[in-house]
Design a protein around this nucleic acid. Structure first.
Lengths: 136, 136
DNA sequence: ATCCTAGCTTGGACTTTGTCTAAGTCAACA
DNA sequence: TGTTGACTTAGACAAAGTCCAAGCTAGGAT
């Protein structure tokens, strides 16, 4: 994650305590926190950090391509730091747990030309749903 | 769509003017309205219908399996009446237009057993993204 | 045909999630 | 060390959705 901060600094990002804390909170695998969850964890390390800064920082990380925004349920967006490894998501229909998964093949290949309606199709997001081991 | 109302009445649904109007508004192909859009159109046919009733009715239609809820962008949920024909969505990254599409093959087949983490996987939703003919 | 009542609808208050702004603060370069 | 533009803050605001108490009504019962 220090690589991340270094990379961003080289891109002209000003390195503040707040941004460092947000980046630290997002470190790890299978991390899919909401903005409020990120804020809560950030506050425990830097009590005066504001909600607005967390939103700003998450938004910047998304634009910079360092974090993915995932809208799984129409409620709060979640932020996924695993942006450099293409993956999809598997979500428990009961408890909401999210795992990163790697399906075989290229999902775009499954969409025939006559189903593209003249679009220049550039990507596909897949959400698999089912019950996790704890919920069945 | 009258089939729909008949089907619901047989399931014990009380048929009110409000529910009829919501069902009428949702009729058609490639319909993906937000709750507020449904409300706006419903109001033009039945001026006194309330937002709460539109939300209630949409929620019931989703539970009854007659309408799908689609969260495409983390903003308002959209309601898709095409629930009886399995399909996925293709969305224009620029203007937000949504089309129903039908990919080849079973999307679940692409997820290997060792990527299922013990989940009982039951479904997959795919969102294809790209630029529509009007936007490129 | 009328009555009854469980179920439906209503408006408004409330919650959640996210955005915006003006004023103050500070990282990084000179 | 000083300067300055970028960053942060608190709080107001907005959008989307939920909840509730009070009133209304569809449709079966009489």
């Amino acid at each position: 994650m220090s690589d991340l901060l270094e990379r961003l600094r080289e891109r002209g990002w000003r390195l503040t305590a707040q941004r460092r804390v947000v980046a630290e909170v997002l470190d790890g695998d299978h991390v899919h926190l909401t903005a409020d969850e990120v804020h809560a964890r950030a506050v425990s390390r830097l009590p005066e950090i504001s909600r607005a800064t967390v939103y700003n920082t998450l938004g910047e990380l998304v634009v910079l391509g360092e974090v993915l925004e995932v809208s799984t349920d129409g409620r709060a967006k979640r932020y996924d730091p695993n942006a450099h490894h293409s993956h999809q998501h598997l979500i428990c229909s009961h408890c909401g747990t999210i795992r990163d998964v790697h399906p075989a093949g290229d999902p775009l290949a499954a969409l025939p030309a006559d189903e593209r309606f003249g679009f220049a199709v550039s990507g596909a997001e897949i959400t698999y749903r089912g019950l996790c081991p704890d919920c069945h």
